[in-house]
Design a protein around this nucleic acid. Structure first.
Lengths: 208, 208
DNA sequence: GTCTATAACGCGATAGAC
DNA sequence: GTCTATCGCGTTATAGAC
């Protein structure tokens, strides 16, 4: 049965290829405007092959977003590993800005799904996202209670961080347009990271 | 020719109805997932009637976004009417937060169009958006040069304001989800306005 | 100015040969 | 595991009666 291992390897390689292609095409065209044919072309596989691995377009879409959510949760591990608000937030902002630059596609897919009220992810979302976000809010609330940061609405602070960092992924086209049509250079992007970090930290009473 | 005036009135009323319906359906479902039939149903008009006033779906979509851009520019009039950074930014943030709450649909349509690289608006965008945004950047740059605010990257500050305020429109579903599934109350929303304003102002060295 | 009927097309999904 | 052929459906846009 030497073929067994080979077939498993084929499956692994093909699903990986399909997921990467789907992330790209979904992000660029949006869910509805993306056809399975587009993804197949990007993945350099026949269209029916996609249906073999992911029976429906929805299933493929959910698989792409599942990957993303795991990666985002990594960015926020600093909330558990550190306690000092300055350290946690500096680390979190840098991690999220980094992902917005290195892997903007997932963020765009997420944004579109939220725009339309999570029609594909549906109810699963509240189970996986809400408790996770509440933990972060709770930590910020504690910082306020202990007088370590100025009194702010924890959720509003969290949203400012999410929005400001993901902006560089989701609105990357607009950012490029306002940068003389050129993508931000490494230097310019680093200045953006510094500005977002400084404004947020000073905004809650900390020294950047 | 008493019919002349009447027909003009019919045209005005119908185009208005169609634009309002289109804004709603485009925002909720996205451009590609929206059919002319959906809009016709929302507008309570026969589908072919839409094609009579707006010959293609693209044309209707562009008309909706044109309206929006004008409204957004109103929010930023404070940049020309005032000079004090504290007054300008407080006014701008409140105006944009207000629109995110009272008229979130347009913001969502804009966000989706940016996500996908402005496939419908196309090149027209750079003419109408870039010079307008550059003026705002220039004013912030002057504040920095005159030592009236701390040194920040002007574009990055502008993006933080746009992202943080539009978040309440674009990610309204997520905000509601994290608010026990209830839309933000008037009080909670006002706290959000205060937090965004305070963090931004303190973040650039001003007292809220 | 309104509305029905239809043309022309692209889509997701599947059946079935290989 | 791969791929061709096809079904059934929904879409935009238009032609033409009213």
């Amino acid at each position: 049965m030497s073929g067994r291992v080979h077939k498993i390897e084929i499956r692994r390689r093909n699903t990986e290829k399909i997921l990467r292609a789907a992330e790209k095409v979904f992000a660029e065209n949006g869910y509805a405007a993306t056809s399975m044919g587009d993804i197949a072309e990007q993945a350099q596989l026949p269209r029916s092959n996609l249906h073999y691995y992911f029976s429906t377009k929805d299933e493929l879409f959910r698989a792409v977003l599942q990957d993303l959510l795991e990666e985002w949760k990594q960015d926020a591990l600093c909330f558990e590993n550190f306690d000092d608000p300055r350290v946690v937030l500096t680390s979190y902002i840098r991690a999220k800005m980094g992902h917005s630059r290195s892997r903007p596609l997932g963020s765009k897919i997420w944004a579109e799904e939220m725009l339309h009220g999570a029609p594909v992810l549906g109810v699963n979302l509240s189970d996986s996202l809400v408790p996770w976000a509440k933990l972060k809010e709770e930590k910020i609330r504690r910082w306020v209670a202990e007088g370590r940061i100025l009194p702010v609405e924890p959720s509003a602070l969290l949203y400012m961080i999410w929005a400001s960092t993901q902006h560089y992924a989701d609105f990357g086209y607009q950012v490029t347009l306002l940068n003389e049509g050129e993508p931000l250079s490494e230097r310019a992007f680093e200045r953006a990271v510094q500005t977002v970090t400084a404004v947020i930290l000073r905004g809650i009473g900390l020294e950047p």
